[in-house]
Nucleic acid binder design. Structure first.
Lengths: 201, 201
DNA sequence: GTCTATAAGCCGATAGAC
DNA sequence: GTCTATCGGCTTATAGAC
């Protein structure tokens, strides 16, 4: 089975005639890598596929990033630098639980675009090296952001459980597409999620 | 990096001198496949590695199961046929929440043996074909078992959310080994999980 | 800065001997 | 019932030309 990335074949719009703009090429490769890793995971995404998505050859990928593993590290760091759901720390506790529930439901909705950071982490779990990179970046970005906004006892454990809940729903609803979650009423799902977040926040 | 399966090299203890016991060979291959798929996922586990774990050659794997994909289907069906955590439906609601929390905490504890069914599903998420097989078996076994024990509104959604919670904690604590969850106090973790299950059951 | 060509190795699946 | 040997295709990474 082919693993085509039929989306926008070339991102490099602002390059010179000869195609010699190192910065734009690098950015195009990184963007293609994020898409490919989120879609197929670390083992499933090939350097050739990533190169094709950026409009270059496979050789340039290793030339710019050294190896597939280092490219994966940069892709994970780039996607996890954007906090997305978890950064709503400026709300009061009850409102925050509702905001989390609504945001999570919307993001895992069947048609919606997945969270690249979580998609990459979940689909790359089989590779120990990729898992180590994901673990480090999750701890550095998402986990810290989240734990800082919590008060009371067991903030570490509660922050980690919030991440587990997000990862679990992402996995079952958007990656695995469990029928019960795909066809579920969004409002009912949000209503079920809200008290769970309320318990943890 | 090699993908050795150094565990018990050969399971076939009750075979005749020539090694010609079709039933035992088949069982040995299936057991080795469960171990390999749980450890490395669908794409990461090779037919040769599975064969080595069963003490046979790669050719016999395809001879007995037709293809790697069919072997994966049997491995998933075998592991998910054992309900493990979710079958504690004979308890009253409040006790059941506590039993779920304790069971989930114990099973995802760092040193403990992972749930093969969830480990295979989580690590094989990158492969669409493997995901489809997992989805069907989850719906057939775990989801049905769980939903039958629930009462009240939204039983489907609540059952799916219980599965999401189990999958999420399994992923973050045992597969990814998030530091906050690895070093967490088991009792504190159980205490945090119990009200979550109480909300859903 | 980017290319073609290739090295070296693993993959799943199969043919044919015994 | 199980083996060895092999096919065709994929992978990452690199050498050398332009």
């Amino acid at each position: 089975m082919p693993k085509s990335v039929p989306d926008r074949p070339v991102l490099r719009s602002a390059k010179r005639a000869g195609g010699r703009d190192a910065c734009a090429t690098r950015a195009a490769i990184l963007a293609s890598a994020v898409r490919a890793f989120a879609a197929h995971g670390y083992d499933g995404a090939g350097v050739r596929e990533i190169a094709r998505g950026a409009g270059v050859t496979a050789m340039l990928v290793n030339r710019y990033f050294g190896s597939k593993e280092k490219l994966f590290g940069e892709a994970v760091a780039a996607t996890m630098a954007q906090p997305v759901i978890l950064a709503q720390g400026n709300l009061a506790a009850p409102d925050r639980a509702r905001a989390f529930a609504q945001a999570l439901e919307a993001i895992t909705r069947p048609g919606a675009a997945p969270l690249d950071g979580f998609a990459i982490m979940l689909k790359s779990a089989a590779s120990p090296r990729a898992a180590a990179i994901s673990r480090a970046q999750i701890a550095k970005h998402h986990f810290q952001t989240l734990e800082r906004t919590l008060t009371g006892p067991n903030t570490e454990e509660r922050a980690a459980l919030v991440l587990s809940l997000v990862a679990g729903l992402h996995q079952m609803r958007q990656t695995l597409r469990l029928p019960a979650l795909v066809k579920a009423d969004p409002a009912a799902l949000t209503a079920l999620l809200e008290p769970l977040f309320a318990q943890l926040l």
